[in-house]
């Protein structure tokens, strides 16, 4: 039998939406994870941060579409911009209202979501929108291996 979402999902790290860039970075560094789910005061899922969002928080808006100008921004400017992002509130750079699945959703649905370039990781929530886990491409790959009998890595 093919595994279900709840059999393969991994632990999700969470953070309150009122916290800042450096607090998110701290969790991601200590827990060695590339994504954190963002919760409101009721513990409901309102957003998600992954490494890409951190990069977006660093890069000033005026350079986002301008690779030519960015070429001329030197090391000092880059360091300055990292320091500037330190106290930025998470709500300013998180991915708002990410696509999410329930524990009993099927894995094909998750696969389609994981294919979209914006969001490689899909939060799993319970009936009250509270996160219970996270599915990444790695979990999907494990299911493929399991179905084809290569065994769990």
């Amino acid at each position: 039998m093919c595994k279900m979402i709840k059999d393969v999902m991994r632990k999700a790290y969470t953070i309150n939406v009122n916290k800042t860039f450096i607090e998110a970075l701290d969790i991601m560094t200590k827990e060695q994870t590339n994504s954190i789910l963002v919760l409101d005061d009721d513990g409901k899922l309102v957003g998600m941060i992954n490494t890409g969002m951190l990069i977006r928080a660093i890069v000033p808006d005026y350079l986002e579409d301008d690779i030519v100008a960015a070429h001329f921004a030197n090391q000092d400017i880059f360091r300055e911009d990292i320091k500037k992002a330190k106290d930025l509130e998470i709500s300013n750079f998180m991915l708002k209202n990410p696509q999410k699945v329930k524990e009993n959703s099927n894995l094909m649905e998750v696969s389609i979501m994981a294919l979209s370039s914006k969001q490689f990781r899909v939060p799993v929530v319970d009936g009250n929108d509270r996160p219970v886990g996270l599915i990444t491409r790695t979990e999907l790959r494990r299911v493929f291996a399991d179905v084809l009998g290569i065994g769990d890595l």
Binding site: L63, A69, F72, A73, N74, I77
Partner: peptide, 13 residues
């Protein structure tokens, strides 16, 4: 749109 970003980089340098 194209000259403003490079302007900002220049003044920051």
């Amino acid at each position: 749109v194209l000259i403003a970003p490079v302007t900002i980089i220049i003044v920051r340098l």
